[in-house]
Design a protein around this nucleic acid. Structure first.
Ligand SMILES: NC(=O)c1ccc[n+]([C@@H]2O[C@H](COP(=O)([O-])OP(=O)(O)OC[C@H]3O[C@@H](n4cnc5c(N)ncnc54)[C@H](O)[C@@H]3O)[C@@H](O)[C@H]2O)c1
Ligand SMILES: NC(=O)c1ccc[n+]([C@@H]2O[C@H](COP(=O)([O-])OP(=O)(O)OC[C@H]3O[C@@H](n4cnc5c(N)ncnc54)[C@H](O)[C@@H]3O)[C@@H](O)[C@H]2O)c1
Lengths: 222, 222
DNA sequence: ATAATTTTGTGAAGCATTTCACATATTTGG
DNA sequence: CCAAATATGTGAAATGCTTCACAAAATTAT
């Protein structure tokens, strides 16, 4: 370890590589359903609109999983990637803000399949507190600190209005949660040791708008 | 123009720059609400966790909007960025798939504020066709070609199950739409002249999972 | 009016990511 | 069993993106 507490010699993996691992995982799941034993970097690349070299380079950061002349074993590689991404286990998730978007996310099967289980809901609306969504009772946001602290929830999805998002995330952080996915269109301040990702749909619409107005030729889609 | 029909000498603007323009727009909207006349690249950067140099470089691709020693005029810059992004106008949008996520998106105020107006809904579920969501009647997907062709809709949000997404997008493309925002977790095939963006929430959760498991220190949040 | 301060705009340098290209390993076909 | 074909893994080159650093311009202070 060095002074910052970081592993020395541990290669930096880029955000793009991690995102592509998700794509590989998705393609491999499909290949498995189609009963393919092996897959080449060429085929894997084609399925996610990438290049074969990119696929091989990405995988090479984590080991060598293929056989020359043959390709990669589908199921084995899928499991390896799941382990790398940390989705070879289940994560308990709490969702804060059971409104339009929050309700849509509760019970989204794809999350559960990937190991993300929403097991707790919070809101501050008296009409919602105590009500039941997909078998989960909505808790009072005022109890979030106690309820999260004594739970094994490590991840929170934040789906509250932007105006209150900073206050709510402060509570979430105080409750000891280290990873947060935020849907509010605002730059939230959190301590350095918290992993925070933002989902910003307007951004993608604006990208499309820009592309149309400017006849933009993107290097690639995302 | 060169052989490909592209403007020659038109600088390639990176995807990252375009996404940051959205962030600048958002920060400038807030600065306007706070009655700030001007803002420096330093302050703008701070508000979106970027660097001042990045802000200035991004803006410099499109012109020189600031005053040395003073900064950028808030309202003027906001309008300039809106024009660059193409959101200084209104875009008519159709949404296909009025399910969990689709319903959440209909009537999401933030979209309307940025000029994206959802004016048409499509579904294939007989129970939903004819019903009313936020004042919009749900149309039958079977009529999409005619209804879109004779409309001024230029953008489609696709919120149907992954299993049918390719068929539905084929219909959307045939109807002449050139820009699509897709929520289904699948790589859709479209002709080269179609702008397609994918919104993939699992990817962000998986990124968080990877970060936690690997003690990942990201270069920056997104 | 002048000096000190602030802040932009931008080439150039530095850094990160992607693509190339090929040695190497393995399979496939005869 | 050998030759041809296939496909990985990876340094090196190419490309792309971010940060640096500073001249130039404007403001602010005296
Ligand atoms: N609706 C969409 O399609 C959409 C899309 C993208 C992003 N978003 C963002 O997601 C967030 C939620 O949007 P929405 O449309 O679901 O809004 P919503 O008003 O339907 O839901 C917000 C929920 O948060 C709850 N809430 C409010 N204050 C709270 C607090 N202090 N503690 C706990 N809960 C609280 C409300 O009671 C409500 O249930 C917003 O930030 C919005 O900008 C929404
Ligand atoms: N629910 C979520 O939170 C969530 C999050 C991220 C992504 N997604 C993705 O968004 C898509 C929709 O998810 P959902 O949860 O809203 O599902 P859903 O089943 O609630 O909604 C899908 C809607 O599409 C309609 N539909 C089905 N086939 C159709 C067709 N051929 N033409 C037109 N409409 C058709 C259905 O009738 C339904 O109303 C899926 O691809 C899903 O993976 C959902």
């Amino acid at each position: 370890m060095d002074q910052t507490g970081e592993m020395v010699n541990k290669k930096r993996i880029s955000e793009s590589t991690i995102h592509r691992l998700s794509l590989y995982f998705r393609a491999l799941s499909q290949l498995e359903r189609e009963n393919n034993e092996t897959v080449s970097s060429k085929e894997l690349a084609k399925r996610e609109k990438l290049t074969p070299a990119q696929v091989r380079k990405d995988l090479s950061f984590f080991g060598s999983f293929g056989t020359r002349g043959l390709g990669y074993p589908v199921v084995e590689l899928k499991n390896k990637i799941a382990a790398i991404l940390g989705i070879d286990r289940s994560w308990k998730v709490a969702l804060v803000g059971v409104g339009n978007i929050g309700s849509a996310l509760v019970g989204y099967k794809e999350f559960t399949k990937q190991g993300f289980q929403i097991v707790k809901l919070f809101d501050n609306d008296q009409r919602k507190i105590g009500s039941n969504h997909k078998g989960i009772e909505v808790s009072d946001i005022d109890n979030i600190k106690e309820e999260l602290t004594e739970s094994d929830i490590e991840l929170v999805i934040l789906a509250v209005p932007a105006a209150v998002a900073q206050f709510v995330i402060d509570d979430v952080v105080r409750a000891g949660v280290k990873a947060i996915l935020n849907f509010a269109p605002i730059n939230l301040k959190v301590p350095d040791d918290i992993y925070l990702r933002n989902e910003n749909m307007s951004m993608e619409l604006e990208y499309l708008s820009f592309a149309m107005v400017n006849n933009h030729t993107p290097r690639k889609v995302r």
